[in-house]
């Protein structure tokens, strides 16, 4: 006797796949964030290689409240900062720049000046990276070697060491 069996079609139901995929897309779209991932770097000196800096050996940049700057106790526009630094570094390229900020100034004020100082390496070289200026010994000036950002506590410690109130 010939009995025909009805064959059950074997298939995976894919109708809901699109729903699941959309759900996952929405999840990843919402949770993934194009976060800010760039900024300025600076390395803190290690205890072993902290150089002794005398005030007369350095370029003192003081950011005042409101964003104005004083360089070596003389007020200077921000545009004049790099030309002044260049002239001083031509005499002695090892001179560090000390960036002090008034506690009442804003973080934005300080960053503006720090960014300006960091631009020295691109402003003092041409497009091929060749130096445009030389120091008095004829060595090329490629940028500011040391930018130091002392904290208020360090400045106070230094002053008390020097006996200044």
């Amino acid at each position: 006797m010939n009995i025909k069996k009805k064959e059950v079609a074997s298939e995976i139901f894919t109708g809901s796949m699109a729903d699941i995929s959309f759900l996952l897309i929405i999840y990843f779209m919402i949770t993934s964030a194009f976060s800010a991932d760039r900024g300025m770097d600076f390395a803190l000196p290690e205890d072993t290689d902290t150089p002794e800096i005398k005030q007369e050996d350095s370029i003192d940049v003081h950011v005042l409240r409101g964003g104005a700057i004083e360089v070596d106790q003389k007020s200077l526009p921000l545009e004049g900062l790099l030309p002044y630094t260049l002239e001083r570094l031509k005499q002695n390229p090892e001179k560090p720049v000390i960036l002090r900020t008034d506690p009442d100034a804003t973080y934005g004020d300080m960053i503006r000046v720090f960014d300006r100082l960091r631009q020295a390496s691109s402003e003092w070289t041409d497009l091929d990276g060749q130096p445009l200026y030389n120091d008095v010994h004829g060595n090329p000036l490629l940028g500011i070697k040391t930018i130091s950002i002392p904290t208020q506590r360090e400045i106070e410690n230094l002053w008390s060491m020097l006996g200044i109130q």
């Binding site: 800010a36 760039r38 900024g39 300025m40 770097d41 600076f42 390395a43 803190l44 290690e46 205890d47 950011v63 900020t101 008034d102 506690p103 009442d104 100034a105 804003t106 973080y107 004020d109 300080m110 960053i111 720090f114 960014d115 950002i149 904290t151 208020q152 506590r153 360090e154």
Partner: peptide, 24 residues
């Protein structure tokens, strides 16, 4: 105010942190 950033920098210096990045 820079005073607060200064306090954080000071805390990092006390902790002997070496590399700091300022997001911008």
């Amino acid at each position: 105010p820079y005073e607060r950033v200064d306090a954080v920098l000071d805390a990092l210096k006390q902790s002997k942190a070496k590399y700091i990045f300022l997001l911008s």
